[in-house]
Amino acid sequence: MSSLNDISQEQLEAFVDGQLDAPDKARVLLALEASETLRTQVAELRRLKDMVRLAYDEVPEPLPRPIASPPIGGYAVAAAAGALIMLAVTQLIAWNWNGKSSLGDHSVATAATAPPQASLAAVDPELVMFHISTSDDRVGTELLDQVELVASQYRRSGRALRVVVVANNEGLRLYQVGHSQNERRIRELFARYDNITFAACGNTLQRLAGSGDSVRLLPQAIVVDSGVAEIARRQQQGWKYIRI
C-alpha cells in the first residue's frame, strides 16, 4: 500500500498526460513496477482519456429517417416545413405540458420532427449523470429504470443525449461480476444505447483491493480516478446531476 500512497492522484494524471519532470516520472515508474493496482489505474486513466477524446470528436450518429418522400417542390416544401415547425412546437409543449398527454398520441409528430430536432440537438446534447453509492439491488434497479426511461424518451423524440452512471463506495457492487442482480440489465442497456457510460470509482476499487476484496468489474464499466471528483468535474461542465 505504501507505494500507492506515495503517488498522488494528481501525479498519476500528470504522468498519464506526460507532464511530469524526469525525477517524478522515475518515481512513478518505480511505483508502477511495484504495484499492479497502480498499473491498472494508469491503464484505465489512459483509456478514459481516450474515450473522452473520442466522445468529443465523435459526430453523433444520424437518426433513422422517416420513409423518404418523393421530391416535391416550391410551395409543397414550404408548407411541409411549416407543418414540421408547428409539429415541433406542439411536441415541445406536449412535453412541457405535464402528465396529460401520452406519448403514443404524438408518435406522428415525433417521427416527422425527429430529423430537424436531431440536427439541432447534435450540436448540444443533453448531459445527465446518475450517481449510486449503495449496494442495495433495489436501488440499483431503480437507477437502471431511470436511466432507461431517460434514454428511451430522448431516443424516441430524436434528441441527443449522453448519460454517465457514476458508482462509488458500495454502489460499485452494481458493476461487480457475479454480485449484482442487475448484471444482465447493464449488458443489455450498454448494447442497446451507445450513449450510456458506466463509470466506477477508482479510489473505491483501490480501497477494496487494499483490504483483500479485489472486485472484478463488468467489461461495460470504465474506471475513473475518483467518483466524487468525476461528479464535481462534470457538474462544472454543465451536466445535470441525479443521485439515486
Binding site: 405535464n98 402528465g99 443533453e126 426511461l149 424518451q153 441525479i242
Partner: peptide, 16 residues
C-alpha cells in the same frame, strides 16, 4: 399535487 410526465425528466428540466 400536480403530475409531471416523469420525475427524473422534470428534475433535469429544472436544473436546466
Amino acid at each position: 399535487v400536480r403530475m409531471v410526465q416523469a420525475g427524473v425528466l422534470r428534475i433535469m428540466e429544472l436544473q436546466e
